[in-house]
Design a protein around this nucleic acid. Structure first.
Lengths: 331, 331
DNA sequence: TTGTAAGCGTTATCAT
DNA sequence: ATGATAACGCTTACAA
């Protein structure tokens, strides 16, 4: 069943039915009703590939995220997808697992659909990806990070500042032997930016940075391993900043089982504010990133730039999106 | 840049370049190399909309899941997407929030792309969706559940049996005042199936079912609320089956803070085997659903049916996919 | 192994 | 407000 079939049934030309779908207000009310009837009767669904070919546009938005299992990105995807689908846009999703090559593959695949926009995580791409998005005739949005003087729209915050804030907070509380535990998954350069913020503050205070990189993979276990290793040192640490709340939760749960007092024996600081963090004993002091907001703002940018919503807001001004330090019991 | 432009540069006709992409083995090695060169040089990306229109096929697979934030579904999406992308398929994702109407919208939107397949969660659809998938000329896969005598391919297990198993397990351990706590989010009829398994077993043993439906929304808090309410009863329960591990975790974390001994005072049983469940104190006894396997098998079915991989396996025979009861400390 | 011609279902453009 | 015609870029079917 094609648009012409519908048109014949109604007794109009195909282009009128086409207008009914794209610009209903340009079709008379009478015709609108009659078309709606036929469409409903036959369950006609427009062929989007044909429309996309003819108009060189589509309502597909491609998104590449490191993975969908992380609570951090899940919230961004969800809010992004929700806002877009409200306006008839569809989400083509791909995972990069922090690999720039997989990201490039995904971008290439998206390109074939003449997408309305593409959303990437961060600004660390292959040269080929960089070329592809430079040439792109549609909006490209980078999320979860900010890099000065980059062309693409960026919706995020400075991870270095987050690392600084966490360290300053602990320093202000009197901690001096502060360690930083990296993400056991490789390739997350944003957690390395947070680490750099940490080492910078440590240096400013004349303190020596203590870095630990867990060797095991499940995050909770990696947190456990890191915690144990750092407590076992000749000169044990008195506070640990973890690259994310999963690692930090692993440490807290491990301490709990062993009867180690937190924060007395060692303060624990996370990143992410996952649902569990508030409920742990002790509850986890952490930084809440604007995960949901990133998705919403990214969607709004795209909708504004494609004309789906009025373009009154200059979304760039929203940057950096605010992170919130949440003081709880663990630090 | 179109396929004809590439063809001109190489000095062949467009169809040869087309073959290079779809059936490389039908193009001479010499030509293959020369085409590859030009493609790389100009960064040519085939227009998928045009190809889809001409062939009435696409490598888009539409998937509707209740939400992507739940650890349960996240694993399914991830494994599904990973396997499909290995074969050049792309994932169009939509959330239903357990709403059949939203599901229908998503299916309609997918249809316009002449997708290679559509994957739904469960078998509870609107009549219109039912009609749409009956008429579909591509595979439709229903995941996370089994319903006898349904036409679509189903990849899942019987939730009623899961509810039965949990209850029998607790009964075998000597518990008699067993309660079931439903999902605070509405519309998850699979958790109601598990509940029905529970009530059936209770009835078989002449025990009265005790049902509780939390009124608050965040799962951890709903679990807390449920736990407190069930312990406060005149005749307190001695075991609780929760609709999922988040609710159960909320109960365990709450008990921990209050110094209530689990399982002595009350046994806790979950569903889902989330990452945290193993690490709680006490660790959570639960049932591990085949989340990852569901995604993998669903993908394999689609790949087999579309001819991307050999069709030697009769995937239906894999059903029901096995759940595993994981005995830990909480029950 | 390669090519020719037609057509996929829609929308842009220009008319009326 | 509605219509005629010509693309859009690719693949199918058939031919050589």
């Amino acid at each position: 069943m094609t648009i012409s079939d519908v048109a014949k049934r109604v007794g109009v030309s195909a282009i009128t039915v086409s207008r009914y779908f794209t610009n209903p207000e340009k079709v008379s009310a009478d015709l609108r009703e009659r078309i709606a009837l036929v469409v409903a009767e036959f369950g006609y669904v427009p062929n989007l590939a044909a429309g996309g070919l003819a108009s060189a546009r589509s309502r597909i938005v491609g998104m590449v995220i490191p993975n969908i299992s992380s609570p951090i990105f899940a919230n961004t995807i969800q809010s992004f997808s929700d806002r877009l689908s409200l306006h008839g846009y569809q989400l083509l999703l791909a995972s990069s697992y922090f690999s720039r090559e997989l990201e490039e593959n995904a971008v290439r695949a998206f390109l074939g659909w003449t997408p309305a926009a593409i959303v990437l995580t961060g600004h660390f791409h292959t040269d080929a990806t960089e070329t592809l998005i430079e040439r792109a005739s549609f909006p490209v949005v980078e999320t979860w990070d900010l890099q000065p003087q980059r062309k693409p729209i960026q919706v995020g915050f400075l991870h270095r500042d987050v690392g600084r804030d966490a360290t300053q907070y602990l320093f202000g509380k009197g901690y001096r032997r502060i360690a930083f535990v990296q993400n056991s998954g490789t390739g997350d350069y944003r957690s390395l930016d947070r680490r750099d913020g940490y080492t910078a503050v440590m240096a400013e205070h004349g303190l020596e940075p203590i870095l630990f990189a867990p060797t095991v993979l499940p995050q909770l276990e990696a947190g456990e391993q890191s915690f144990e290793a750092l407590m076992k040192r000749d000169n044990p640490v008195d506070a640990i900043i973890f690259a994310n709340d999963s690692l930090a939760s692993g440490a807290i749960l491990s301490a709990q089982r062993k009867g180690i007092n937190i924060p007395e024996k060692c303060a624990i600081f996370g990143f992410g504010d996952y649902a569990i963090s508030e409920k742990l004993s002790p509850s986890l002091t952490t930084i809440r990133p604007p995960a949901k907001e990133i998705g919403e703002v990214a969607a709004s940018c795209i909708l504004a730039l494609t004309g789906a919503i009025p373009q009154d807001a200059e979304f760039q001004h929203l940057n950096p999106l605010p992170c919130e330090l949440i003081e709880r019991e663990s630090a």
